[in-house]
Amino acid sequence: MSEIVEPAVPGLFVADEHGARVLGSKCEACGTPYFPKVPVCHNPACPGSRMEPCGFGGRGVVWSYSVANFAPPAPHKYDKPFRPYAIGVVDLASGLRLVGQIVDPPEAVTVGAAVELVIEPLYHEGGKTFTTWKFKLV
């Protein structure tokens, strides 16, 4: 029996032959990146919104991180028993500062560490595996 894998929220990320990416947008007029997608640019100094879809993935650097030592309240979902995880704020080389769980043990994470974006399981429910974007130390 093959495992049924679904995104925790559809349409936010992909992993294909080009690698793992979150699906956002970028304003072609002022260069501001967004995730998730926005229909118009929010930059008050932007000369005129020109939004294009844009994927963000690849490598980045941990700007800082925290640890969830206790399970967050709903609407977060997780596999029991709860295991503490690190949450990274990562400056991607592609220009996006992105928040995400780090798959490595919290003790292994440091500020300034190099990471890459991956798509990994977040929780299991009803016989299905639900995935999200995370970071992995490289």
Partner: peptide
């Protein structure tokens, strides 16, 4: 909602 469902970032984080 996305931040809580997809990442799980409690207030103190």
């Amino acid at each position: 909602f996305l931040r809580q469902r997809c990442v799980g970032m409690p207030g103190p984080a």
